[in-house]
């Protein structure tokens, strides 16, 4: 659904009783929210449920009058999405992680770390491979990559949300991109430096 109004204007209309405009907000943000949650929980159906839950929670907060984001709807709803996905992920996770300063999970460096089973089994499809390679990144790096690239949160917002400094958030993004680049090369996934616009 196309609509030239800004998020802020749509939220204002919603708060004034025009609840239909929420559909525009859903259409605008749902694809990114779904992609980000999918990368975190790794299950399409759970991601669909959680995406729906994000918007239900947002409506609840808006209706209750507790919404006060000073015009920043997107970071606010992305943070809801991130929190819901992480809560779900933590509930499902049965083993502890120890994150090193660079965001590396200490267990990733040990010999008994799992073989890249997902890679081996992945379809010969770039998307599936890319998704699998992102999953291989250490948790802290993957978290920043998803929040910055897919949720479009600023590095400052990410720093605030994850309780680290902006330099740490930026550094984790750097490690994530460099690691990903290495993995892309290793798995011969084509990424032509000249075909992407500057």
């Amino acid at each position: 659904m196309e609509n030239a109004l800004s998020d802020c204007q749509l939220v204002k209309q919603f708060l004034q009783g025009n609840e239909e405009v929420f559909e525009v907000l859903v259409a605008r943000h749902q694809p990114r929210i779904f992609t980000a949650i999918h990368l975190i929980v790794k299950d399409r159906y759970i991601a669909e449920d959680l995406t729906q839950e994000v918007f239900i929670k947002a409506i609840g907060t808006l209706r209750s009058g507790r919404y006060n984001d000073e015009g920043k709807f997107k970071p606010w709803i992305m943070r809801i999405a991130h929190n819901l996905a992480i809560d779900h992920f933590r509930r499902e996770k049965r083993y502890p992680t120890i994150v090193l300063e660079d965001g590396t999970n200490v267990f990733n460096t040990m010999d008994f770390a799992e073989a890249p089973y997902e890679i081996i089994q992945a379809q010969k499809d770039t998307k599936a491979k890319l998704r699998a390679l992102i999953q291989e990144l250490p948790d802290a790096q993957k978290e920043v990559l998803i929040m910055r690239h897919y949720m479009e949160m600023s590095f400052q917002d990410i720093a605030d949300a994850t309780g680290v400094s902006i330099n740490t958030a930026l550094g984790r993004m750097r490690y994530a991109l460099l690691n990903l680049r290495k993995k892309l090369k290793k798995h011969h996934i084509a990424y032509d430096q000249n075909i992407y616009p500057r």
């Binding site: 694809p31 990114r32 992609t35 990368l39 770039t126 998307k127 890319l130 998704r131 992102i134 990559l145 690239h149 897919y150 991109l177 990903l180 680049r181 892309l184 996934i189 990424y191 032509d192 430096q193 075909i195 992407y196 616009p197 500057r198």
Partner: peptide, 13 residues
């Protein structure tokens, strides 16, 4: 190189 890696991430969107 960084730009190409970042652009590739858009494949999932």
């Amino acid at each position: 190189a960084l730009r190409a890696t970042v652009s590739l991430l858009d494949e999932l969107l």
